[in-house]
């Protein structure tokens, strides 16, 4: 083998090794500093990684991985219903909702948005249906089980990371270190509060279903026909209709 080829190979191998070393994020910051401040950078990256990615894979199996979780469903429904007296019907519906342990969340004209305990959603829907003539209705359920579980795991990890940061803060002596930890603590606290808010919102949506009811007044009868009626060429159609039925002809 010619010597120049061997030299080139060795140089290339050196570059590859150097690249591997630089790519290892956990090693380089600590290696760069001798005063221990690299530890903070490592920790911050650790926390950021924990929150940004799925932490369950880092600390082993997810807690709920093997157990079959109970489905967490956000239930929503809407109905337009024709009634004779919309105001009376609205009042009666709200009374029924209170009976189910629910409450009025919003009212806009004859449209009421109510929240009822999820377990009684079907009953509330049936009670509403019975109040008049259903013009249209729809129901949907969104499964948030996975999002809720992920939030729980991420929250747990973020809280542990905050505790670790607090320990670091107690041990830190340099002003620069203290400031950097505090910045990271603030960011992490905001992240935890945001996740707690989302978890609370999801839990509330799951616990209380949302039902929107629109009460449509029964329309006035159409005006009587004024122009001369042309009789149908089909005799039996001329004899048909509510006039002949109700008047016993």
């Amino acid at each position: 083998m010619p010597q120049s080829v061997v030299v080139r190979f060795l140089v290339l191998a050196l570059f590859v090794l150097a690249g591997c070393q630089a790519g290892s994020g956990y090693l380089s910051p600590a290696a760069e500093t001798s005063d221990g401040s690299g530890l903070l950078t490592v920790l911050a990256e650790d926390v950021q990684g924990d929150i940004a990615t799925n932490p369950g894979t880092k600390s082993g199996a997810r807690p709920a991985e093997n157990a079959a979780p109970e489905r967490m469903l956000i239930q929503r429904g809407q109905m337009r219903i024709e009634v004779v007296h919309p105001d009376d019907s609205s009042r009666a519906f709200l009374e029924a909702v209170k009976g189910f342990g629910g409450y009025l969340a919003q009212q806009s004209g004859r449209t009421l948005t109510v929240r009822v305990p999820a377990a009684r959603f079907d009953e509330a829907f049936a009670a509403l249906r019975a109040m008049g003539r259903v013009l249209d209705e729809s129901r949907e359920a969104s499964d948030v089980t996975e999002e809720f579980q992920d939030l729980g795991i991420r929250l747990d990890t973020a809280r542990k990371a905050r505790e670790r940061l607090l320990e670091v803060l107690q041990k830190a002596e340099k002003v620069d270190d203290i400031l950097r930890v505090e910045v990271e603590l603030r960011r992490l606290t905001e992240e935890i509060e945001r996740m707690e808010g989302r978890a609370k919102f999801l839990a509330d949506q799951v616990a209380m279903a949302t039902l929107q009811a629109t009460f449509v007044p029964k329309s006035e009868p159409p005006p009587p026909q004024k122009r001369t009626r042309q009789r149908s060429r089909y005799a039996w159609i001329n004899e048909a209709g509510p006039e002949s039925l109700l008047e016993g002809n």
Binding site: S219, P221, P222, P224, Q225, R229, G241, P242, L246
Partner: peptide, 30 residues
Amino acid sequence: QRGYVEVAKGEVADSAGVMGQWIEFTANVR
């Protein structure tokens, strides 16, 4: 001709499964 208002319509199968049609109106009679 009579000024009724059509409310809804659809299909229905009788007891022998033969398909028929239904239609609903609201009307002003006197």
